[in-house]
């Protein structure tokens, strides 16, 4: 038995995904299998990009705020805080939805053509409404350590402020906290991405052109064949004898729904376990 909850859940998650992949290879038709695999890869690629961009934006903004407050530049500090508070007050899903609409326009206009250019832009719009959490965490860590003696001692020894903050406070003493935050951001990115893709795909009527964004788990779930598969779960509740068919005849929708929910649950438990292990 694996001792640590986070490692245990990482193993459970990977095993679950591998088992599902094996099951799908055996029982799911090839075109559907290709779609599910592409959706999975796209979703997780964008989520990883979200982590990278969020970390970069969060780190840079927190440092900027720190140095502005240190140099007593009130106007710049207040302006950035104002923008951050404004972003905080916009529900993430609404902000991301606007970002997606903009991306689809850029795509239709031919400015964003390949998936390689679409992915970072999509990830950037998502990060824009998530990175504030990283800013809060980093600022909290810097403020905490600045109250301790070692900060003044290092400054007296002539170590530059940027090295104390970046290396000693953030890298040496806070990387576990930041990493834990990034794990939960990974889960949040998957949730938001799947939700926005689902509502964009399901909300489109025949009156408007389909937004031509890369297929993700959310957009695949909104397709009519996957939706029929999900509806079959409800049918099973009143006709339990039908349950066996779910895993063979309705595999596409069930696989996608399972991938989303199981990943969210596993990431949540990994994050919790990591926090417990390091007593965060």
């Amino acid at each position: 038995m694996i001792k640590y909850k986070d490692i245990r859940w990482t193993v459970v998650w990977l095993t679950g995904i591998l088992f599902l992949a094996a099951w799908d290879i055996l029982f799911l038709n090839k075109p559907a299998l290709k779609k599910v695999a592409a959706g999975f890869v796209n979703t997780f690629t964008i989520a990883v990009l979200v982590i990278c961009i969020t970390l970069l934006l969060g780190w840079l903004t927190a440092l900027l705020l720190h140095f502005l407050s240190l140099r007593k530049r009130r106007t710049g500090y207040m302006a950035i805080m104002f923008i951050l508070n404004l972003l905080r007050s916009i529900p993430q899903v609404v902000g991301i939805l606007f970002g997606y609409i903009l991306v689809s326009y850029l795509h239709d206009a031919g400015i964003l053509k390949s998936a390689f250019s679409l992915f970072p832009v999509l990830a950037f719009f998502m990060s824009l409404f998530i990175f504030i959490e990283v800013v809060d965490l980093i600022r909290e860590r810097i403020d905490h350590f600045r109250k301790l003696d070692f900060y003044n001692a290092m400054r007296v020894c002539g170590i530059p402020e940027s090295r104390v903050v970046n290396f000693h406070i953030l890298w040496k003493n806070s990387r576990i906290h930041i990493f834990n935050k990034l794990i939960s951001i990974f889960g949040m990115a998957i949730f938001l991405q799947c939700s926005v893709d689902f509502i964009i795909s399901v909300g489109l009527s025949t009156d408007v052109n389909e937004v031509s964004l890369p297929a993700t788990l959310g957009s695949l779930l909104a397709k009519i064949d996957s939706k029929q598969d999900i509806l079959a779960i409800g049918y099973t509740l009143t006709n339990p004898a039908y349950a066996g068919h779910l895993f063979f005849q309705h595999l596409q929708g069930i696989s996608i729904a399972f991938l989303i929910v199981f990943s969210l649950l596993s990431i949540y438990n990994i994050s919790n376990g990591y926090a417990e292990r390091h007593r965060l």
């Binding site: 799947c194 399901v202 999900i230 779960i233 409800g234 049918y235 509740l237 929910v261 649950l265 949540y268």
Partner: peptide, 14 residues
Amino acid sequence: FCPAYVIAYSIRTE
């Protein structure tokens, strides 16, 4: 942990 739309579509027929 299920997203709302998964639960909603699962029981929509009933």
